[in-house]
Design a protein around this nucleic acid. Structure first.
Length: 586
RNA sequence: GCGCCCAUAGCACAACUGGAUAGUGCAUCGCCCUUCUAAGGCGAGGGUUUCAGGUUCGAAUCCUGAUGGGCGUGCCA
């Protein structure tokens, strides 16, 4: 309907050009909007106001000219000019129910569209270091990324969901060493755990796994481990960074190749836990991309070589630098350190290089907003590799600030003090958590009140929507139990009996669903789905309270049950985009 | 210091991306269960959209500045 109006208006603009009312090279944007206020009709356009300058004519006069050019349309009841120059369209009530046929025909596919035109897009999200369990901060990125991916899929993009596994680098060495030290403590060694090591209880579990595989074969005396090690923070001449690095060196030296066994056990255990966790959160990935595989297959060297050939790499103070300032970054960035080790950034250049090689049309990176300073250098690398920098879209997610009993909860991965995603899921449920996260615009700061989320559900709007779905299921079930017939075909033939305000409201609302998907997909805003579903559920609840659905009048009953069946389908489709379940009873 | 993001009712958030009288949920107050689930509905109060300018037919939305908050500013990841 909306598109039809847009088409009609496009024709009118052409006629205005022909008549010389507006210049022939004018290209006004045709915009048809859903009205907020029913007295303004069903659709409105601001076309006259947009063109007032190019036509040199007051908007209302121009609006009149446009209306005069509009030919009769079968489903348009009337057209009005209102306010400063809006043109309001009133659609015949019966036409508003046309969407129902489409809903039943398309079923679960209703709402899908093709604005993506099959373009391939890689959505990379979560990508948390496998150094510990996911916490509630990661949860927001996971919920947002998964919903964005679902949305893009529904909008006709060919989506690949990917998790970048940082299974290389110093943090992982710190992890492996932390595990080994805990193992040694378990073996009865007295030692002071490094202040910079990972202290969470999950490390003890991994250490236990090491023991079950190696018994006491990795046992070394503590005095040997700590021999000649730079003192830890708090001691004389102490330095926590040097201390942990020295311990890593000792671990590698004393364990030899078995160090990598410990390392692997740690990565497998923690990554396995993360996978389980995400699975329980209904967040699924098509690909888990290993950072180490970039090294093993020489992609990093290839990418650096490419930059080198382009003259974008230079040497200074023993390190290799990338000229990111040539592309607007604040300063040039080191890719190979003085000690010969490649930086994380080098891996990331290679990773994005690899993503491009795989032939995606669009790359979406979803990062925590604390990484925003990183965007210019990655974008710079993309440009230096002579690719279209617009192929990269970085979406930032603000961290959720946790509150418990009105107090801000301090969190730090290293200290092991954090609320895990798993804990959150177990306490509030996956459905509520997913919905709660995605309700807010991603770049908005978000206060996550744990007491509220954990408290029994009244404030969790997800129940409100699920309840609407369950209610419909229950009504249909009741009709059966009470021996009332319900036939969709007959319902479709009697839709003209649906004349109540609540009924036309619901039909109008249902018709909006496809465009909500299209719009929210292109701007990566799944919260629009959440708000839409709340509105739709509200419409249903209101209707439920106002009207009896299971009535003796056969035709009316068929029609009403048909309408709520359509509502049920759309609720189900929308909830599926958010990976929230649509229960049949509650 | 410099850079990026943010600021909307007491609280948490929307506002179709520049449109008409800025909405929704909590919370507060008043109604509605002998009825298909009250995990629901209806109604009321609550606003100088942080402040000051600017752009235009029209601004919560765009521009400039101020204020307040978050983050970043490593040869860490």
């Amino acid at each position: 309907m909306k598109q039809q109006l847009a088409q009609i208006l496009t024709d009118v603009v052409q006629q205005l050009k022909d008549q010389g009312v507006i210049p022939s090279d004018a290209a006004p944007r045709i915009h048809v909007e859903n009205t907020r206020d029913k007295t303004h009709g069903d659709f409105a356009t601001n076309l006259a106001m947009m063109m007032t300058k190019m036509a040199g004519m007051p908007p209302r006069d121009l609006a009149q000219k446009i209306v005069d050019l509009l030919s009769d349309h079968p489903v348009i009841e009337k057209i009005e000019i209102a306010g400063p120059g809006f043109i309001n369209f009133f659609v015949q009530d019966t036409a508003k129910f046309d969407v129902l046929a489409q809903i039943f025909e398309q079923g679960d596919a209703f709402g899908r569209c093709n604005v993506g035109q099959g373009k391939s897009v890689l959505v990379e999200f979560v990508s948390a270091n496998p150094t510990g369990p996911l916490h509630v901060g990661h949860g927001r990125g996971a919920a947002y990324g998964a919903s964005v991916a679902n949305l893009l899929d529904a909008a006709g993009f060919d989506v690949c969901r990917e998790y970048y596994v940082n299974d290389a680098g110093r943090q992982m060495d710190i992890l492996a060493t932390s595990v080994w030290l805990r193992y040694l403590q378990d073996q009865g060694e007295e030692l002071t755990f490094p202040s910079n090591g990972y202290k969470g209880n999950y490390i003890l579990d991994v250490a236990a796994e090491v023991r079950s595989q190696f018994a006491n074969r990795l046992h070394k005396p503590a005095f040997e481990v700590f021999a000649n090690v730079t003192p830890d923070e708090g001691m004389e001449d102490g330095d926590k960074e040097k201390h942990i690095d020295a311990l890593i060196e000792r671990a590698k030296h004393l364990l030899g190749s078995q160090y990598y066994d410990v390392f692997q056990i740690a990565v497998d255990a923690i990554l396995g836990d993360i996978r389980d966790d995400l699975e329980g959160f209904k967040v699924r990935f098509d690909n888990w991309f290993s950072e180490r595989s970039l090294m093993d297959t020489g992609v990093i060297d290839a990418a650096l070589e490419k930059l080198q050939k382009a003259g974008k790499i230079y040497e200074q103070r023993g390190a290799l630098w990338f000229r990111s300032t040539e592309y607007g970054d604040e300063k040039d960035r080191v890719v190979v350190r003085e000690n010969g080790l490649k930086t994380y950034f080098a891996s990331d250049i290679a990773y994005h290089f690899n993503k491009l090689e795989r032939g995606f049309d669009l790359l979406i990176d979803i990062w925590g907003s604390d990484h925003h300073g990183y965007i210019p250098r990655v974008r710079a690398a993309m440009q230096a590799m002579e690719t279209n920098p617009d192929a990269l879209e970085v979406l930032l997610v603000q961290f959720a600030v946790l509150y418990r009993s009105g107090e801000k909860v301090a969190m730090s991965t290293r200290s092991g003090q954090f609320v895990t995603l798993r804990e959150l899921r177990e306490e509030v449920g996956s459905d509520a958590a997913r919905f709660f996260y995605v309700q807010r615009k991603s770049e908005q700061h978000m206060d996550f009140d744990l007491d509220l989320a954990k408290s029994q559900s009244n404030d969790n709007p997800v129940y409100y929507i699920q309840y609407a779905h369950a209610r419909i299921c229950r009504v249909l079930e009741q009709a059966r139990e009470k021996g009332y017939s319900f036939d969709l075909q007959q319902g479709m033939q009697n839709l003209e009996l649906l004349t109540e305000e609540h009924e036309t409201y619901l039909a109008t609302e249902l018709a909006k669903y496809p465009e909500i998907i299209a719009r929210s997909a292109v701007v990566y805003e799944p919260h629009q789905i959440a708000y839409y579903l709340k509105d739709l559920a509200n419409g249903l609840h209101t209707y439920y309270n106002a009207s009896q659905f299971i009535v003796d009048d056969d035709n009316l009953r068929h029609a009403r049950l048909t309408l709520i069946s359509a509502v049920r389908q759309v609720l189900r489709n929308g909830l599926a985009l958010l990976d929230v379940s649509a229960p049949e009873s509650m």
